[in-house]
């Protein structure tokens, strides 16, 4: 692809790229360099960066490889959002930028910085390894190559979208919880784990699932949907995360994780009262000891402000609760039947 022949278009203008710079060998802290170049409409951010590297400043450092949106190398934050430079149009970013004519280019977040726009990917690979992000085949290796597994298109479709992931780490960069704790499993790793767990060829489903429900695992996700919203391949990552949770509750029950108990409490309350009994939610999620230690200090002020949720006996059930209870039970019958059908398959 050309870096100097810029496409022939009518519209052209000066664009300033405000690029994050940091070379740990010489810089004590990161700074920004402005590069103003004349560009024509239709050019991608990556081609603009290539142009800068070749004609203005050869030391600007970023990763790029396929330049076609499939290898995942050139993920960076453009105007604050993590995305691929090679599939991002400069003109679109000009519309988005807060300062007229200036596009901010920064490295991904939540991964250690190496230089300028390059971050260390090893922590992500480490997590993939930790969570066995591979199919551990039910078929012994010495049997491989002899016959196909028979897989329905329907099963293929359960992991089809997830296998679009190019590990560009945009979701990692945007993840709320990872920013709050670097040991968190990461959206990409959850997605891959889900993809492996729904694959009938895999033989370590339970072991993988057991790893995912531990601390810093699937239950720590805060459902902010940033991963999904910024996924460059438009993969519904939250569906995968919810899928793992659904699976965890179905297979492991709710005993082993606070997150599962928390989720289960919703089910119980709706079945009984039609609404959530917030007062006992902390106890049901984390037990009495945790609640006393963590929430009692705040309770005093809450009481003063009349902000404490009412105790369970005072939570009025919804008006139509009798009908709702009946319907809920009926649906439970349906679900039981579904499960029987599924395990019979």
């Amino acid at each position: 692809m050309s870096d100097t022949t810029i496409q022939h278009h009518v519209e052209s203008r000066d664009v300033t790229f405000r690029v994050h710079r940091f070379n740990p060998q010489v810089d004590s802290k990161p700074y920004f360099d402005d590069y103003t170049i004349k560009l024509e409409k239709g050019i991608t951010v990556l081609r603009a960066l290539n142009y800068i590297k070749e004609h203005v400043d050869s030391t600007v450092t970023f990763r790029a490889f396929c330049q076609a949106g499939i290898c995942g190398s050139c993920a960076m934050r453009i105007n604050g959002i993590s995305k691929l430079a090679c599939t991002t149009q400069v003109w679109d970013e000009l519309d988005r930028s807060r300062e007229t004519g200036i596009i901010r280019i920064e490295p991904l977040r939540n991964l250690p910085l190496i230089k300028d726009l390059v971050v260390e990917m090893d922590p992500l690979v480490g997590k993939m390894k930790k969570h066995s992000n591979w199919v551990d085949s039910r078929m012994p290796e010495d049997e491989w190559g002899k016959k196909e597994f028979l897989i329905s298109e329907k099963e293929f479709l359960t992991y089809d979208k997830a296998t679009d992931c190019i590990l560009c780490a945009s979701c990692v960069s945007e993840c709320t919880i990872l920013r709050a704790h670097q040991e968190y499993v990461s959206p990409a790793v959850l997605l891959k784990s889900y993809r492996m767990n729904v694959d009938s060829r895999d033989g370590i489903h339970d072991q993988r699932l057991a790893g995912l429900v531990k601390d810093h695992g699937v239950w720590d996700c805060t459902h902010c949907y940033r991963c999904q919203e910024t996924c460059v391949k438009h993969i519904p990552i939250m569906d995968a995360i919810h899928g793992i949770r659904e699976d965890a509750i179905e297979r492991r029950g709710t005993k082993d994780t606070s997150g599962a108990r928390h989720a289960e409490a919703f089910m119980d309350d709706i079945a009984k009262k039609g609404k959530l009994v917030e007062a006992t939610l902390p106890i049901r999620t984390n037990g009495i000891a945790w609640t006393v230690k963590n929430l009692l200090p705040m309770a005093f002020k809450m009481v003063l402000k009349r902000r404490t949720p009412p105790p369970p006996p005072l939570v009025k059930a919804s008006k139509g609760i009798d009908a709702l209870r009946k319907e809920f039970r009926e649906m439970t019958g349906h679900v039981t039947k579904d499960h029987q059908k599924k395990s019979g398959e």
Partner: peptide, 15 residues
Amino acid sequence: KIIRELDNMGTPWSR
């Protein structure tokens, strides 16, 4: 053989 082997180790194939 190689296509089956890839299938056996988990490559997603359209069906």
